[in-house]
Nucleic acid binder design. Structure first.
Lengths: 248, 248
DNA sequence: ATGGCTATTATGTATATACATATTGGAGCG
DNA sequence: CGCTCCAATATGTATATACATAATAGCCAT
Protein backbone atom coordinates (compact mmCIF):
# COMPACT_ATOMS: atom_id res chain seq x y z
CA UNK A 1 0.00 0.00 0.00
CA UNK A 2 1.36 3.37 -0.91
CA UNK A 3 1.11 6.17 1.50
CA UNK A 4 -0.53 8.48 -0.91
CA UNK A 5 -3.19 6.11 -1.90
CA UNK A 6 -6.61 7.60 -2.16
CA UNK A 7 -9.88 5.95 -1.49
CA UNK A 8 -12.82 7.97 -2.57
CA UNK A 9 -15.08 8.05 0.38
CA UNK A 10 -18.10 8.23 -1.89
CA UNK A 11 -18.04 4.50 -2.28
CA UNK A 12 -18.54 4.17 1.44
CA UNK A 13 -15.37 2.27 2.06
CA UNK A 14 -14.64 1.58 5.69
CA UNK A 15 -11.61 3.48 6.81
CA UNK A 16 -10.05 3.33 10.20
CA UNK A 17 -9.99 6.65 11.96
CA UNK A 18 -6.34 7.44 11.35
CA UNK A 19 -6.81 6.56 7.69
CA UNK A 20 -9.75 8.92 7.49
CA UNK A 21 -7.78 11.74 9.08
CA UNK A 22 -4.89 11.09 6.70
CA UNK A 23 -7.24 10.99 3.75
CA UNK A 24 -9.02 14.21 4.75
CA UNK A 25 -5.79 16.11 5.09
CA UNK A 26 -4.30 14.69 1.92
CA UNK A 27 -7.40 15.73 0.04
CA UNK A 28 -7.10 19.32 1.32
CA UNK A 29 -3.49 19.41 0.21
CA UNK A 30 -3.89 17.80 -3.18
CA UNK A 31 -6.95 19.90 -3.98
CA UNK A 32 -5.02 23.02 -3.13
CA UNK A 33 -7.31 24.16 -0.29
CA UNK A 34 -4.25 24.06 1.92
CA UNK A 35 -1.52 25.60 -0.19
CA UNK A 36 2.19 24.86 0.18
CA UNK A 37 3.53 26.54 3.27
CA UNK A 38 0.16 26.46 5.00
CA UNK A 39 0.28 25.32 8.60
CA UNK A 40 -2.09 22.45 9.15
CA UNK A 41 -3.86 22.16 12.51
CA UNK A 42 -1.83 21.11 15.52
CA UNK A 43 -2.18 17.59 16.79
CA UNK A 44 -4.18 18.76 19.77
CA UNK A 45 -6.58 20.64 17.49
CA UNK A 46 -7.16 17.57 15.33
CA UNK A 47 -7.53 15.54 18.51
CA UNK A 48 -10.41 17.85 19.48
CA UNK A 49 -11.85 17.96 15.97
CA UNK A 50 -11.98 14.19 15.52
CA UNK A 51 -12.53 13.53 19.21
CA UNK A 52 -9.76 10.99 19.42
CA UNK A 53 -6.41 10.52 21.09
CA UNK A 54 -3.21 12.22 20.04
CA UNK A 55 -1.65 8.89 19.06
CA UNK A 56 -4.29 8.44 16.40
CA UNK A 57 -3.71 11.88 14.94
CA UNK A 58 0.03 11.35 15.22
CA UNK A 59 -0.16 8.17 13.19
CA UNK A 60 -1.87 9.98 10.35
CA UNK A 61 0.51 12.94 10.41
CA UNK A 62 3.61 10.76 10.64
CA UNK A 63 2.54 8.94 7.52
CA UNK A 64 1.89 12.16 5.65
CA UNK A 65 5.34 13.33 6.67
CA UNK A 66 6.93 10.14 5.45
CA UNK A 67 5.06 10.45 2.18
CA UNK A 68 6.55 13.90 1.83
CA UNK A 69 3.28 15.80 1.70
CA UNK A 70 3.92 17.68 4.91
CA UNK A 71 6.91 18.71 6.92
CA UNK A 72 6.80 18.60 10.71
CA UNK A 73 8.73 21.01 12.90
CA UNK A 74 8.89 20.72 16.64
CA UNK A 75 7.46 23.63 18.47
CA UNK A 76 6.21 25.16 15.20
CA UNK A 77 3.73 22.70 13.76
CA UNK A 78 3.21 20.83 10.52
CA UNK A 79 3.34 22.52 7.15
CA UNK A 80 2.30 21.62 3.63
CA UNK A 81 5.45 21.07 1.63
CA UNK A 82 6.19 22.89 -1.58
CA UNK A 83 5.60 20.70 -4.62
CA UNK A 84 9.20 21.28 -5.65
CA UNK A 85 10.01 18.60 -3.13
CA UNK A 86 10.39 15.97 -5.77
CA UNK A 87 12.12 12.66 -5.70
CA UNK A 88 15.60 12.70 -7.13
CA UNK A 89 14.46 10.92 -10.22
CA UNK A 90 12.08 13.70 -11.13
CA UNK A 91 14.57 16.44 -10.47
CA UNK A 92 16.72 14.85 -13.08
CA UNK A 93 13.99 15.63 -15.52
CA UNK A 94 13.95 19.31 -15.00
CA UNK A 95 15.80 19.84 -18.18
CA UNK A 96 16.62 23.49 -17.62
CA UNK A 97 18.55 22.53 -14.50
CA UNK A 98 20.31 19.70 -16.25
CA UNK A 99 21.39 21.94 -19.07
CA UNK A 100 22.52 24.80 -16.87
CA UNK A 101 24.44 22.36 -14.69
CA UNK A 102 26.47 21.64 -17.81
CA UNK A 103 27.33 25.31 -18.08
CA UNK A 104 25.27 25.75 -21.23
CA UNK A 105 22.51 28.22 -21.95
CA UNK A 106 19.01 26.81 -21.99
CA UNK A 107 16.16 27.53 -24.35
CA UNK A 108 12.78 25.92 -24.98
CA UNK A 109 10.96 26.14 -28.25
CA UNK A 110 7.46 24.91 -28.92
CA UNK A 111 6.99 22.95 -32.11
CA UNK A 112 3.37 21.88 -31.99
CA UNK A 113 0.30 22.64 -29.93
CA UNK A 114 -3.10 21.05 -30.43
CA UNK A 115 -6.19 21.04 -28.28
CA UNK A 116 -8.44 18.11 -29.03
CA UNK A 117 -10.81 15.54 -27.73
CA UNK A 118 -8.74 12.54 -26.59
CA UNK A 119 -8.43 9.71 -29.09
CA UNK A 120 -7.82 6.10 -28.09
CA UNK A 121 -4.04 6.51 -28.06
CA UNK A 122 -4.20 9.61 -25.88
CA UNK A 123 -6.36 7.79 -23.40
CA UNK A 124 -4.04 4.82 -23.33
CA UNK A 125 -1.05 7.04 -22.64
CA UNK A 126 -2.78 9.07 -19.97
CA UNK A 127 -4.63 6.13 -18.45
CA UNK A 128 -8.02 7.75 -18.97
CA UNK A 129 -11.21 5.72 -19.06
CA UNK A 130 -13.51 8.23 -20.73
CA UNK A 131 -12.97 10.70 -23.56
CA UNK A 132 -12.33 14.32 -22.66
CA UNK A 133 -10.32 17.37 -23.73
CA UNK A 134 -6.56 17.08 -23.88
CA UNK A 135 -3.72 19.35 -24.89
CA UNK A 136 -0.97 17.81 -27.03
CA UNK A 137 2.36 19.59 -27.08
CA UNK A 138 5.66 19.01 -28.76
CA UNK A 139 8.75 21.06 -28.01
CA UNK A 140 12.48 21.10 -28.14
CA UNK A 141 14.92 21.77 -25.32
CA UNK A 142 18.20 23.34 -26.40
CA UNK A 143 21.58 23.27 -24.72
CA UNK A 144 23.44 26.16 -26.27
CA UNK A 145 22.78 25.88 -29.98
CA UNK A 146 22.29 22.12 -29.99
CA UNK A 147 19.01 20.26 -29.48
CA UNK A 148 19.19 18.49 -26.13
CA UNK A 149 15.86 16.71 -25.83
CA UNK A 150 12.59 16.38 -27.65
CA UNK A 151 9.48 16.52 -25.52
CA UNK A 152 6.10 15.08 -26.47
CA UNK A 153 3.41 15.78 -23.92
CA UNK A 154 -0.26 15.25 -23.27
CA UNK A 155 -2.09 17.22 -20.60
CA UNK A 156 -5.45 16.11 -19.29
CA UNK A 157 -7.49 19.29 -19.43
CA UNK A 158 -10.16 17.80 -17.20
CA UNK A 159 -7.58 17.78 -14.44
CA UNK A 160 -5.76 21.00 -15.32
CA UNK A 161 -8.24 23.30 -17.02
CA UNK A 162 -5.97 26.38 -16.89
CA UNK A 163 -3.51 24.71 -19.24
CA UNK A 164 -5.94 25.32 -22.09
CA UNK A 165 -5.21 29.05 -21.87
CA UNK A 166 -1.44 28.67 -22.05
CA UNK A 167 0.43 28.84 -25.30
CA UNK A 168 3.69 27.29 -24.00
CA UNK A 169 5.67 29.03 -26.68
CA UNK A 170 8.79 29.57 -24.61
CA UNK A 171 7.67 28.16 -21.29
CA UNK A 172 8.17 24.43 -21.02
CA UNK A 173 5.03 22.72 -19.73
CA UNK A 174 6.95 20.74 -17.09
CA UNK A 175 7.92 23.62 -14.82
CA UNK A 176 4.54 25.25 -15.46
CA UNK A 177 2.71 22.16 -14.23
CA UNK A 178 4.94 21.61 -11.23
CA UNK A 179 4.08 25.04 -9.88
CA UNK A 180 0.36 24.38 -10.20
CA UNK A 181 -0.45 20.73 -9.74
CA UNK A 182 0.83 18.85 -6.71
CA UNK A 183 1.45 15.32 -7.89
CA UNK A 184 0.83 12.30 -5.76
CA UNK A 185 2.26 9.57 -7.91
CA UNK A 186 4.35 9.11 -11.00
CA UNK A 187 5.33 6.18 -13.16
CA UNK A 188 8.43 6.11 -15.30
CA UNK A 189 9.24 3.96 -18.26
CA UNK A 190 12.75 4.07 -19.54
CA UNK A 191 13.98 2.44 -22.69
CA UNK A 192 16.28 2.75 -25.66
CA UNK A 193 15.04 3.42 -29.16
CA UNK A 194 16.41 4.11 -32.60
CA UNK A 195 15.61 7.60 -33.85
CA UNK A 196 13.02 7.61 -36.63
CA UNK A 197 13.19 10.26 -39.30
CA UNK A 198 11.14 12.86 -37.47
CA UNK A 199 13.08 12.49 -34.28
CA UNK A 200 16.41 12.44 -36.08
CA UNK A 201 15.41 15.63 -37.82
CA UNK A 202 14.37 17.41 -34.66
CA UNK A 203 17.40 16.33 -32.66
CA UNK A 204 19.82 16.77 -35.53
CA UNK A 205 21.19 13.24 -35.39
CA UNK A 206 21.31 10.45 -37.96
CA UNK A 207 18.22 8.33 -38.48
CA UNK A 208 18.63 5.09 -36.54
CA UNK A 209 20.86 6.70 -33.90
CA UNK A 210 20.25 5.32 -30.40
CA UNK A 211 18.12 7.47 -28.11
CA UNK A 212 17.17 7.25 -24.49
CA UNK A 213 13.43 7.55 -23.97
CA UNK A 214 11.97 8.50 -20.62
CA UNK A 215 8.20 8.44 -20.32
CA UNK A 216 6.40 9.67 -17.26
CA UNK A 217 2.78 9.50 -16.24
CA UNK A 218 1.68 11.62 -13.33
CA UNK A 219 -1.38 11.44 -11.14
CA UNK A 220 -2.82 13.85 -8.64
CA UNK A 221 -5.33 12.41 -6.22
CA UNK A 222 -5.98 9.43 -8.53
CA UNK A 223 -6.60 11.67 -11.54
CA UNK A 224 -4.25 11.37 -14.49
CA UNK A 225 -2.60 14.73 -15.06
CA UNK A 226 -0.04 14.39 -17.80
CA UNK A 227 1.96 12.00 -19.92
CA UNK A 228 5.31 13.12 -21.20
CA UNK A 229 7.97 11.50 -23.34
CA UNK A 230 11.50 12.86 -23.36
CA UNK A 231 13.75 11.68 -26.14
CA UNK A 232 17.47 12.26 -25.69
CA UNK A 233 20.23 11.51 -28.16
CA UNK A 234 22.32 8.80 -26.56
CA UNK A 235 25.47 10.87 -26.30
CA UNK A 236 23.88 13.71 -24.44
CA UNK A 237 22.35 11.97 -21.53
CA UNK A 238 22.80 9.62 -18.61
CA UNK A 239 20.18 9.11 -15.92
CA UNK A 240 21.57 8.81 -12.43
CA UNK A 241 19.65 7.50 -9.47
CA UNK A 242 20.93 6.67 -6.03
CA UNK A 243 19.15 4.33 -3.68
CA UNK A 244 19.34 3.04 -0.20
CA UNK A 245 17.16 0.07 0.75
CA UNK A 246 13.66 1.44 1.01
CA UNK A 247 11.99 2.88 4.07
CA UNK A 248 13.73 4.27 7.06
CA UNK B 1 12.93 -1.17 29.62
CA UNK B 2 12.84 2.58 29.54
CA UNK B 3 13.13 5.14 26.81
CA UNK B 4 16.49 3.91 25.66
CA UNK B 5 17.70 5.21 22.35
CA UNK B 6 19.93 2.76 20.62
CA UNK B 7 22.65 3.71 18.28
CA UNK B 8 23.02 1.58 15.26
CA UNK B 9 26.73 1.21 14.72
CA UNK B 10 26.67 0.29 11.11
CA UNK B 11 25.40 3.56 9.74
CA UNK B 12 26.59 5.55 12.70
CA UNK B 13 23.08 6.93 12.93
CA UNK B 14 20.95 7.06 16.01
CA UNK B 15 17.84 5.06 15.41
CA UNK B 16 14.74 4.84 17.53
CA UNK B 17 13.86 1.37 18.64
CA UNK B 18 11.12 0.76 16.10
CA UNK B 19 13.47 1.97 13.38
CA UNK B 20 16.12 -0.42 14.57
CA UNK B 21 13.69 -3.33 14.55
CA UNK B 22 12.57 -2.35 11.06
CA UNK B 23 16.15 -2.05 9.90
CA UNK B 24 17.18 -5.40 11.37
CA UNK B 25 14.34 -7.22 9.68
CA UNK B 26 14.82 -5.44 6.38
CA UNK B 27 18.46 -6.44 6.47
CA UNK B 28 17.56 -10.09 6.95
CA UNK B 29 15.17 -9.94 4.03
CA UNK B 30 17.37 -8.03 1.60
CA UNK B 31 20.37 -10.17 2.41
CA UNK B 32 18.33 -13.28 1.74
CA UNK B 33 18.73 -14.77 5.21
CA UNK B 34 14.95 -14.77 5.38
CA UNK B 35 13.85 -15.94 1.96
CA UNK B 36 10.52 -15.09 0.33
CA UNK B 37 7.75 -17.05 2.01
CA UNK B 38 9.64 -17.27 5.29
CA UNK B 39 7.55 -16.50 8.36
CA UNK B 40 9.17 -13.79 10.40
CA UNK B 41 8.81 -13.91 14.19
CA UNK B 42 5.43 -13.10 15.71
CA UNK B 43 4.93 -9.74 17.32
CA UNK B 44 5.02 -11.29 20.78
CA UNK B 45 8.33 -12.99 19.97
CA UNK B 46 9.90 -9.74 18.81
CA UNK B 47 8.44 -8.06 21.86
CA UNK B 48 10.39 -10.54 24.01
CA UNK B 49 13.50 -10.35 21.86
CA UNK B 50 13.76 -6.56 21.94
CA UNK B 51 12.22 -6.29 25.38
CA UNK B 52 9.71 -3.69 24.31
CA UNK B 53 5.97 -3.28 23.93
CA UNK B 54 3.90 -4.77 21.15
CA UNK B 55 3.03 -1.30 19.82
CA UNK B 56 6.68 -0.66 19.09
CA UNK B 57 7.08 -3.92 17.22
CA UNK B 58 3.79 -3.29 15.46
CA UNK B 59 4.98 0.08 14.21
CA UNK B 60 8.01 -1.51 12.59
CA UNK B 61 6.06 -4.37 11.02
CA UNK B 62 3.28 -2.11 9.76
CA UNK B 63 5.85 -0.03 7.95
CA UNK B 64 7.49 -3.07 6.42
CA UNK B 65 4.08 -4.20 5.24
CA UNK B 66 3.38 -0.80 3.76
CA UNK B 67 6.74 -0.84 2.04
CA UNK B 68 5.75 -4.17 0.52
CA UNK B 69 8.58 -6.20 1.99
CA UNK B 70 6.32 -8.38 4.11
CA UNK B 71 2.73 -9.51 4.05
CA UNK B 72 0.76 -9.80 7.28
CA UNK B 73 -1.99 -12.35 7.81
CA UNK B 74 -4.17 -12.45 10.88
CA UNK B 75 -3.88 -15.56 12.90
CA UNK B 76 -1.03 -16.80 10.69
CA UNK B 77 1.77 -14.33 11.09
CA UNK B 78 3.92 -12.14 8.84
CA UNK B 79 5.70 -13.47 5.79
CA UNK B 80 8.47 -12.25 3.52
CA UNK B 81 6.88 -11.32 0.23
CA UNK B 82 8.01 -12.62 -3.09
CA UNK B 83 9.98 -10.07 -5.06
CA UNK B 84 7.78 -7.41 -6.45
CA UNK B 85 7.42 -5.83 -9.80
CA UNK B 86 8.15 -2.15 -9.56
CA UNK B 87 10.51 -1.09 -6.85
CA UNK B 88 12.42 -4.30 -7.25
CA UNK B 89 13.27 -3.43 -10.82
CA UNK B 90 15.60 -0.68 -9.81
CA UNK B 91 16.53 -1.93 -6.38
CA UNK B 92 17.49 -5.48 -7.10
CA UNK B 93 17.31 -5.89 -10.83
CA UNK B 94 17.23 -9.65 -10.71
CA UNK B 95 17.17 -10.74 -14.32
CA UNK B 96 16.02 -14.27 -13.60
CA UNK B 97 12.83 -12.87 -12.12
CA UNK B 98 12.30 -10.53 -15.02
CA UNK B 99 12.70 -13.33 -17.51
CA UNK B 100 10.49 -15.77 -15.65
CA UNK B 101 7.85 -13.08 -15.25
CA UNK B 102 7.68 -13.11 -19.05
CA UNK B 103 6.93 -16.82 -18.96
CA UNK B 104 10.26 -17.73 -20.51
CA UNK B 105 12.88 -20.11 -19.24
CA UNK B 106 15.99 -18.54 -17.80
CA UNK B 107 19.61 -19.51 -18.22
CA UNK B 108 22.90 -17.85 -17.38
CA UNK B 109 26.13 -18.57 -19.17
CA UNK B 110 29.53 -17.26 -18.21
CA UNK B 111 31.65 -15.94 -21.04
CA UNK B 112 34.76 -14.59 -19.34
CA UNK B 113 36.33 -14.71 -15.90
CA UNK B 114 39.56 -13.01 -14.91
CA UNK B 115 41.12 -12.36 -11.55
CA UNK B 116 43.53 -9.46 -11.60
CA UNK B 117 44.98 -6.52 -9.77
CA UNK B 118 42.72 -3.55 -10.46
CA UNK B 119 43.84 -1.23 -13.23
CA UNK B 120 42.89 2.43 -13.40
CA UNK B 121 39.64 1.77 -15.25
CA UNK B 122 38.57 -0.87 -12.75
CA UNK B 123 39.18 1.53 -9.91
CA UNK B 124 37.25 4.28 -11.62
CA UNK B 125 34.27 2.01 -12.15
CA UNK B 126 34.30 0.64 -8.64
CA UNK B 127 35.18 3.91 -6.97
CA UNK B 128 38.29 2.49 -5.36
CA UNK B 129 41.13 4.69 -4.19
CA UNK B 130 43.90 2.10 -3.93
CA UNK B 131 44.82 -0.88 -6.11
CA UNK B 132 43.70 -4.32 -4.99
CA UNK B 133 42.44 -7.63 -6.31
CA UNK B 134 39.28 -7.65 -8.43
CA UNK B 135 37.31 -10.27 -10.29
CA UNK B 136 36.11 -9.37 -13.77
CA UNK B 137 33.21 -11.37 -15.17
CA UNK B 138 31.26 -11.35 -18.37
CA UNK B 139 28.14 -13.42 -18.87
CA UNK B 140 24.97 -13.75 -20.88
CA UNK B 141 21.42 -14.02 -19.57
CA UNK B 142 19.07 -15.97 -21.81
CA UNK B 143 15.29 -15.79 -22.11
CA UNK B 144 14.35 -19.05 -23.79
CA UNK B 145 16.82 -19.44 -26.64
CA UNK B 146 17.39 -15.74 -27.15
CA UNK B 147 20.04 -13.61 -25.44
CA UNK B 148 18.28 -11.25 -23.08
CA UNK B 149 21.07 -9.24 -21.51
CA UNK B 150 24.83 -9.07 -21.48
CA UNK B 151 26.42 -8.58 -18.08
CA UNK B 152 29.86 -7.10 -17.45
CA UNK B 153 30.82 -7.11 -13.81
CA UNK B 154 33.67 -6.20 -11.49
CA UNK B 155 33.78 -7.52 -7.95
CA UNK B 156 36.01 -5.95 -5.32
CA UNK B 157 37.73 -8.95 -3.79
CA UNK B 158 38.92 -6.90 -0.83
CA UNK B 159 35.27 -6.55 0.15
CA UNK B 160 34.07 -10.03 -0.90
CA UNK B 161 37.00 -12.40 -0.63
CA UNK B 162 34.90 -15.56 -1.07
CA UNK B 163 34.04 -14.53 -4.62
CA UNK B 164 37.58 -15.47 -5.66
CA UNK B 165 36.72 -19.14 -5.12
CA UNK B 166 33.57 -19.05 -7.25
CA UNK B 167 33.62 -19.98 -10.90
CA UNK B 168 30.21 -18.42 -11.76
CA UNK B 169 29.78 -20.77 -14.66
CA UNK B 170 26.04 -21.13 -14.38
CA UNK B 171 25.36 -19.05 -11.30
CA UNK B 172 24.92 -15.38 -12.06
CA UNK B 173 27.03 -13.27 -9.74
CA UNK B 174 24.11 -10.95 -8.88
CA UNK B 175 22.02 -13.44 -6.88
CA UNK B 176 25.19 -14.94 -5.43
CA UNK B 177 26.26 -11.56 -4.08
CA UNK B 178 22.84 -10.67 -2.75
CA UNK B 179 22.85 -13.75 -0.58
CA UNK B 180 26.21 -12.85 0.92
CA UNK B 181 26.68 -9.12 1.01
CA UNK B 182 23.95 -6.91 2.42
CA UNK B 183 24.10 -3.72 0.42
CA UNK B 184 23.57 -0.37 1.98
CA UNK B 185 23.60 1.83 -1.05
CA UNK B 186 23.45 1.61 -4.80
CA UNK B 187 23.86 4.04 -7.65
CA UNK B 188 22.37 3.51 -11.08
CA UNK B 189 23.33 5.04 -14.36
CA UNK B 190 21.02 4.47 -17.25
CA UNK B 191 21.71 5.41 -20.82
CA UNK B 192 21.27 4.38 -24.42
CA UNK B 193 24.10 3.12 -26.57
CA UNK B 194 24.67 1.72 -30.02
CA UNK B 195 25.84 -1.90 -29.97
CA UNK B 196 29.47 -2.26 -30.95
CA UNK B 197 30.60 -5.40 -32.73
CA UNK B 198 31.28 -7.45 -29.62
CA UNK B 199 27.96 -6.58 -28.04
CA UNK B 200 26.05 -7.10 -31.25
CA UNK B 201 27.67 -10.49 -31.57
CA UNK B 202 26.83 -11.56 -28.02
CA UNK B 203 23.26 -10.31 -28.11
CA UNK B 204 22.62 -11.44 -31.65
CA UNK B 205 21.56 -8.06 -32.98
CA UNK B 206 22.92 -5.84 -35.73
CA UNK B 207 25.93 -3.68 -35.02
CA UNK B 208 24.73 -0.15 -34.25
CA UNK B 209 21.40 -1.35 -32.87
CA UNK B 210 20.18 0.73 -29.93
CA UNK B 211 20.71 -0.81 -26.49
CA UNK B 212 19.66 0.14 -23.01
CA UNK B 213 22.57 0.18 -20.60
CA UNK B 214 22.04 -0.01 -16.86
CA UNK B 215 25.10 0.34 -14.69
CA UNK B 216 25.00 -0.16 -10.97
CA UNK B 217 27.58 0.45 -8.28
CA UNK B 218 26.90 -1.04 -4.89
CA UNK B 219 28.38 -0.24 -1.50
CA UNK B 220 28.18 -2.10 1.74
CA UNK B 221 29.04 -0.09 4.82
CA UNK B 222 30.92 2.47 2.72
CA UNK B 223 33.02 -0.15 0.90
CA UNK B 224 32.61 -0.55 -2.84
CA UNK B 225 31.40 -4.07 -3.53
CA UNK B 226 30.65 -4.40 -7.20
CA UNK B 227 30.13 -2.58 -10.44
CA UNK B 228 27.87 -4.16 -13.01
CA UNK B 229 26.78 -3.15 -16.47
CA UNK B 230 23.71 -4.75 -18.03
CA UNK B 231 23.24 -4.27 -21.75
CA UNK B 232 19.80 -4.99 -23.20
CA UNK B 233 18.73 -4.93 -26.81
CA UNK B 234 16.24 -2.07 -27.07
CA UNK B 235 13.31 -4.29 -28.08
CA UNK B 236 13.59 -6.58 -25.13
CA UNK B 237 13.45 -4.23 -22.27
CA UNK B 238 11.64 -1.37 -20.57
CA UNK B 239 12.50 -0.23 -17.09
CA UNK B 240 9.49 0.66 -15.00
CA UNK B 241 9.60 2.59 -11.79
CA UNK B 242 6.74 3.99 -9.81
CA UNK B 243 7.21 6.77 -7.31
CA UNK B 244 5.34 8.71 -4.75
CA UNK B 245 6.75 12.02 -3.67
CA UNK B 246 9.27 11.67 -0.91
CA UNK B 247 12.20 13.59 0.32
CA UNK B 248 15.52 11.94 0.13
C1' DA C 1 21.49 46.04 21.96
C1' DT C 2 22.82 41.34 22.83
C1' DG C 3 24.04 37.23 24.51
C1' DG C 4 22.52 33.63 27.39
C1' DC C 5 19.02 31.42 30.27
C1' DT C 6 14.41 29.52 31.05
C1' DA C 7 9.73 28.29 30.31
C1' DT C 8 6.70 26.93 26.92
C1' DT C 9 5.21 24.42 23.15
C1' DA C 10 4.61 20.78 19.53
C1' DT C 11 6.30 16.92 18.06
C1' DG C 12 8.75 12.11 18.79
C1' DT C 13 8.84 7.81 21.01
C1' DA C 14 7.45 4.38 24.07
C1' DT C 15 4.44 2.07 27.53
C1' DA C 16 0.40 -0.73 29.18
C1' DT C 17 -4.08 -1.78 28.17
C1' DA C 18 -8.34 -2.86 25.74
C1' DC C 19 -11.23 -4.55 22.47
C1' DA C 20 -12.17 -5.66 17.39
C1' DT C 21 -11.52 -8.72 13.55
C1' DA C 22 -9.99 -12.30 10.60
C1' DT C 23 -8.56 -16.95 10.36
C1' DT C 24 -7.62 -21.48 11.72
C1' DG C 25 -7.64 -25.95 14.23
C1' DG C 26 -10.35 -28.84 16.46
C1' DA C 27 -14.49 -30.47 19.15
C1' DG C 28 -18.91 -32.07 18.64
C1' DC C 29 -22.98 -33.24 16.13
C1' DG C 30 -25.89 -34.95 12.29
C1' DC D 1 -17.66 -38.51 6.88
C1' DG D 2 -18.74 -33.83 6.43
C1' DC D 3 -20.58 -30.03 8.52
C1' DT D 4 -21.15 -26.32 11.92
C1' DC D 5 -19.68 -23.82 15.67
C1' DC D 6 -16.41 -22.42 19.10
C1' DA D 7 -12.09 -21.26 21.12
C1' DA D 8 -7.55 -19.90 20.34
C1' DT D 9 -4.47 -16.87 18.09
C1' DA D 10 -2.17 -12.98 15.61
C1' DT D 11 -2.88 -8.94 13.80
C1' DG D 12 -5.50 -4.13 13.62
C1' DT D 13 -6.91 -0.10 15.87
C1' DA D 14 -7.47 2.96 19.55
C1' DT D 15 -6.94 4.65 24.27
C1' DA D 16 -4.58 7.27 28.20
C1' DT D 17 -0.28 8.25 29.90
C1' DA D 18 4.59 9.45 30.30
C1' DC D 19 8.75 11.44 29.38
C1' DA D 20 12.25 13.10 25.74
C1' DT D 21 13.69 16.51 22.49
C1' DA D 22 13.95 20.45 19.47
C1' DA D 23 12.82 25.07 18.70
C1' DT D 24 11.27 29.37 20.07
C1' DA D 25 9.63 33.49 22.60
C1' DG D 26 10.53 36.25 26.15
C1' DC D 27 13.05 37.67 30.13
C1' DC D 28 17.10 39.07 32.45
C1' DA D 29 21.67 40.65 33.26
C1' DT D 30 25.67 42.49 31.43
Amino acid sequence: MSLVETDDVDGGEILSLHQRILSDIREKILSGVWAPGHRIPFEHELTAQYNCSRMTVNKALSQLAKAGLIERRRRSGSFVRHPQSQAAVLELHDIRIEVEALGLSYRYVRLERAKRRSDAEDRALLGLAAPGPVLALEGLHFAGERPFALEQRLINLSAVAEAAEEEFIEIAPGPWLIGRVPWSEAEHRIRAMAADENIADALDVDAGAPCLVVERRTWSAEHPVTHVRFIYPAESHTLVARFTPSQG
